[in-house]
Each structure stands twice: as C-alpha cells, then as structure tokens.
Simulated scan of single mutants.
Amino acid sequence: MAQPESTYPSTFSEWNAAFLSYENVISSNSDELKLEATIKLGGQLHRAPKHLLLLTVPILVRILEDLPGASGPLQEAAACCLKRVICDNEDHELATLVCEPRTVASLVSILSRSDGRCQKYLIKCLWGAACNALGVISSHVDFIRPVAEAGVIPLYAELLRGTEQLGWEIAEDVFCVLAVVEANAVEIVQHLVRILREDNAEARAAAADVLWDLSSYKHSISVIHNSGAIPILVQLLGDQNTDVRENVSGAIAQLSYRGVNRSALADAGAIPCLIEMLQDESEELRDNAGESLMNFAEDPIHHERLSEAFAMPAFQNMQERMVHIRAADHHMVRSLRHMSIEQLTRDPVLD
C-alpha cells in the first residue's frame, strides 16, 4: 500500500498528541478521515514509541472487527498497520499482547470474512503472532501450559480448516511446540481427529501432516493410539486426494515403528492397503508404504502376512535402501564413538 509523505513527531509529547488525534478520528463517523489517518499511521509505525504501539493494536483490531462484509479500504489499511506492528517488532511485551487468545481469536474470525490484500495482511499477522508465540514459549518453557489453557488450541485448529497453506504451516508450528506437554497433545490430537472426519480434503491433508509430525513424539504415539485416529488414518489411505494419502501414509509409517501401533494398524486393515500402494504412481506413497511394510516384516507377529509383498520390486528396493541407510547410520555411530572429545570440539578454523 502506497504511503503518503508524513512528518514524524520528534518528542514524547508530540507522539502522545499524534496518538490522541488518531484515537479521536477513529471515534468519529467519517470513514474517509479514518482511512486517511490510518494510512498516515502506517507510515509512522516504525518510529513510534513502544507504549503507543501497545495502545494501537487494540484499536486496529476493533477496526477489523467492525468489518461489515467484504473488507474495504479502511480494513485493508488497518490490517496493513497491524502486520507492521506484529511482524516488524521483536519486543517481548508486544509479543505477549499479540499472542493473547482474544487477539488471536479476533484475527482468525476476521480472516474468514476478509478477502484480497486485507486477507493476505491478516495471514501475515497470524504468522507473526505464531512466530512471536513460539519465540516466547521456546524462551520460557513454563509458558506452554498457560498458553494452551488460555484457549489457543481450538483457534489454531480453525486455521487448518482454512484454504491458505500459510495458515496450515502456522498451526503446525504452534501445535508442534505445544504438544511437548502431553495434556496439550491430547487436546490437539482430538481436534485433528475431528478434522480427519470432515469433508474438507485440504483440511484433512493438513491435519494428517500435523499427525505425521506428532507421531515422532514419544508420548504422542500413545496419545494418537488412544485417540481412535488409527482406523481413520487407514480408511484415508483410500482417499481420492493425493495429498491426503501421502500425509496419512507418512503418519502411518512413523506410527508403524511401535509394536502396539502395528497391531492396531493391522487390525484396521492397513497391510493390504499398503501392499497395494507399492504400485502407486506417487513415489512418496510407495516409499511410505514400503517403510511401513518393512516394519511389519521385521515383526514376527505380522511377518507371514506380508508374503505377497516380498516378491514386489518396490518392496525389494525399499529393503535394499533400508539396509544401506541402517548400515550408514551404524557406521556413523561407530565413527563417533571412536572420536575423541578433542576431535569433536576442535574448531577447524582455529587450526
């Protein structure tokens, strides 16, 4: 959005006067004046004092919440300003304000009613909020539980139901951090299972992708098993959408490393589906299916059920690849064991 030339306040009192002037304009009934003032604000935000940025965020959110239908110029200008506040600042206090569930809830709600550039700005706002949230949480692990208890998990689950890939990535990043706490993982997986049952193929693919990530968490494996997700995942191996099948097969491959999950997968009918996938056109599907079947083949309980797969070239290729990968991993471990502490910590630049 093009910004008109503006002179910047230079003193504390001038900035306060400028903010009060903006606040008065926003309280008026003139959309034209509101738009002009908001555009001017956008050009001054990068120099504004922090205390005024903290006061500005709620005003911008209120402008967006008043969105009647399709987003207009005023809402677009407000979204642009909000994006600049959220994405161009790394201040801890601003990050905390932006990550408040009330703010996130408003942004998610407004996103579904916006369009055009306004919608793109809001997606970037949510991305910035997520990055700030992850930064705050990563810096202070004690924040994970309060953040979840404040109700953000359902809000980010809504992003998975959206149509924007960036929204899915935002939710995935947040969920992967929050799921470090087992109680959060339980709630997250419950939302993902509900989405997997819905008609939205893109949302199903996004939810399966998050489950794929969470399947690598030690405590999340039992959480996923107990959630009833496994029969749904097996059913979705036959989904018409390739992205759904690829992400679901990836999650199943990860889950198949645990015996209790292999039994649940076999009981749900996964093995015949995975054998059939060895002939799929998608290389990723073939690889994921082959990885799962390798885990079943090495399990005495399920070995005999894979007789059909043993003669298939795709399965034989996967066996050879897994042998090479495991041999390389074993060699790396042995090499590291023989390296001295001095070798591991030596800086080659200083040699």
Rank of each mutant, 00 (worst) to 15 (best):
S6I: 13
T11C: 04
Y22R: 10
V25S: 04
E32S: 14
H46Y: 14
R47Q: 11
V57G: 01
P58I: 10
G69N: 10
A70E: 05
P73D: 11
E76C: 13
C81K: 08
N89S: 15
T103W: 00
G116H: 08
Q119Y: 03
Y121L: 02
K124D: 15
C125D: 04
A130P: 02
N132E: 03
S139N: 15
V141D: 13
E158V: 08
T163E: 13
W168A: 11
A171Q: 14
A171W: 14
E172T: 07
N184S: 08
A185Q: 00
I188M: 11
Q190Y: 05
H191G: 01
H191V: 00
L192Q: 10
I195L: 07
D199M: 02
W212H: 07
S215A: 15
H219K: 11
I221V: 14
S222M: 02
S227G: 03
Q240R: 10
N241K: 03
A264F: 07
A264E: 15
D267V: 06
A268Q: 02
A270R: 08
I271L: 07
I271P: 06
I271D: 04
L274K: 11
S292F: 10
N295I: 09
P300H: 12
I301V: 14
H303A: 05
F310C: 00
A311Q: 13
M312N: 04
P313T: 09
H324F: 06
A328N: 04
R334G: 00
